[in-house]
Design a protein around this nucleic acid. Structure first.
Lengths: 168, 168
DNA sequence: ATAAACTTTCAGTAATATTTGAAAGTTAAA
DNA sequence: TTTAACTTTCAAATATTACTGAAAGTTTAT
């Protein structure tokens, strides 16, 4: 396979994976493009490469910056803004984990905590099943939360090491 | 908070979380309903409780069965089919992990393996950046894959234990 | 100040995903 | 068999989400 075709495939695959995990396809594609670009890109270049509108490119880039995955770069003597992505995979994984935890896991844990305080008849099967399910899911969510915490603080090798240690 | 309101909130929260992670909201809601139902439910009951159409209920239930999260139950002397969800949270987590790995992670790893075999000029920055990114992501993906493998085989306590061991 | 270069916004449009509901299909009892 | 109970299918409708493009906004150089 040649490089241009490979780039194309990479962008497509990343976009598809993103959309399957609730991340806007275009956003994932812009991220993919920046990941494989040695130089920071202008909005113009991104629009052209991915055939998207100026508005879309602008919104997407700002969102990627919001996720902490992309940064602006200013080149001396130039008005244009350049964008580049952090290429360290472990940073990317941590950044995504961090944001999704904040945006999605935290609110769910909050609701579950509320729901685990529901009052009811301890003899009612409806009540028993409800409280049990909420309790169990709460426990799982908190384990995930704790693991993410570890991951956010950890070095890559150390983290995987702690998971695979058992195989020594 | 009273039980009926709490149930409502639980179903909503589960539906929202699902949709944020690329799982159809209704599917997550049906799952939530079955999770907190002590008795297996008929299609009719699910339709009524969630205000969804017969077609939607039927499709969703079949999909949940496809994900290994819900099973059919036949009651002696009845024509109707009843549906119930496995309530073991650890089983649910593993089942979801298993399916998503098969449907989404495996295909991506396949593409990445292909892309890491791309030929090009080892002096070209475009080529260098591309191969490096692909290589790094591939490594991360394979670590995730390996972790899921461990998780699928593991007992709940053992699994979390191996992750939290470091805190002893 | 004015203009040119560039960025941001957002109402309208398009694309995608989900849902409905009625008809067709299936199964089992009479 | 025939009928009634129940399940499945799928084309059309609806809802949701994403995208466009032109106008408005901003910044910098002259």
């Amino acid at each position: 396979m040649e490089l241009p075709e490979a780039k194309q495939k990479f962008i497509e695959a990343w976009g598809k994976l993103g959309s399957e995990w609730g991340i806007n396809r275009t956003m994932a594609q812009v991220h993919a493009l920046l990941l494989i670009s040695p130089e920071a890109q202008t909005t113009e270049e991104i629009m052209l490469t991915l055939s998207i509108s100026r508005g879309n490119a602008n919104m997407t880039l700002r969102e990627l910056i919001g996720w902490g995955l992309v940064e602006k770069q200013h080149k001396a003597g130039e008005r244009k803004e350049y964008f580049f992505a952090d290429k360290d995979t472990w940073n990317i994984a941590r950044q995504v984990a961090k944001e999704r935890r904040k945006r999605e896991l935290d609110p769910v844990i909050k609701v579950l905590d509320e729901l685990s305080r529901v009052e009811g008849d301890a003899k009612d099967p409806e009540f028993i099943t409800f409280t049990q399910s909420v309790k169990d899911i709460n426990k799982l969510a908190k384990n995930v939360d704790k693991t993410l915490d570890t991951m956010l603080k950890a070095e890559e090798n150390w983290f995987w090491g702690s998971i695979f240690k058992i195989f020594k």
